[in-house]
Design a protein around this nucleic acid. Structure first.
Lengths: 111, 111
DNA sequence: CCAATAGTTAGCCCTTGCGCTAACTGTTGG
DNA sequence: CCAACAGTTAGCGCAAGGGCTAACTATTGG
């Protein structure tokens, strides 16, 4: 628990786009070249590359260029940042197993 | 596993900002009024309100107005969308306990 | 060797995001 | 009742995001 903030920003931002989430999902199956990936999305290669760069600089994927082919690989470990954040969040609210829920549900029904 | 996409977008986008994550964390402790929350961040009330609205429309928080005070409450349940997405992702890559890692680590060391 | 292939770079457009100020509405304590 | 308070609305400025085209580089199969 520290100043992950910048890294978390990058990871959440990266995941906040459906194309990029789809890429992550896709790479969960197997490493894939940029071209093969791009072919599955309705956009041009340069546009798609921006997503790849965003994912890479967030650390969610790594890429290696071999000859003229760039292969993308998922970096499973990076997703644990999200996991940790969720766990921390859960820890916080479990410290207070109060009736916070009811608190609002009550007010809500009053004018 | 379906077309949560739009909802996931909203949630991830909401979490992709440090101010909003801080609000979520803060609300993990207790429901809080907009004014009390805003006082902890270096921005004006109207600016802060936009974050509140973003969080609210993502479903991560709910708000109730009582008199002239609007109180924000965390909606714990909504975070499970993220949780589910993570779990699904994990499920995918666990189907393939291959040597994907090595795959790349190898290529990497070659010219 | 050279045409095709795979990716890259540069630059443009438009929309959205996030901050601000100013001025307004609705509630309330005294 | 009215001044102070809590939030809201409107509108503005600027930077960033996500898409595009055009033109370029670097590899490679034949």
């Amino acid at each position: 628990m520290a100043q992950y903030s910048a890294q978390l920003d990058d990871v959440f931002v990266a995941l906040a786009d459906p194309t990029r989430r789809a890429v992550v999902r896709r790479l969960g199956h197997a490493p894939t070249s940029v071209g093969d990936l791009a072919r599955e999305f309705p956009m041009t290669l340069p546009s798609f590359m921006k997503h790849v760069r965003t994912l890479e600089s967030s650390g969610l994927i790594r890429t290696v260029k071999h000859g003229r082919v760039r292969t993308c690989v998922l970096n499973r470990e990076r997703l644990s940042l999200v996991d940790d954040w969720l766990a921390d969040q859960r820890r916080i609210w479990e410290e207070r197993t109060d009736r916070l829920e009811e608190f609002v549900t009550d007010e809500r029904n009053e004018p």
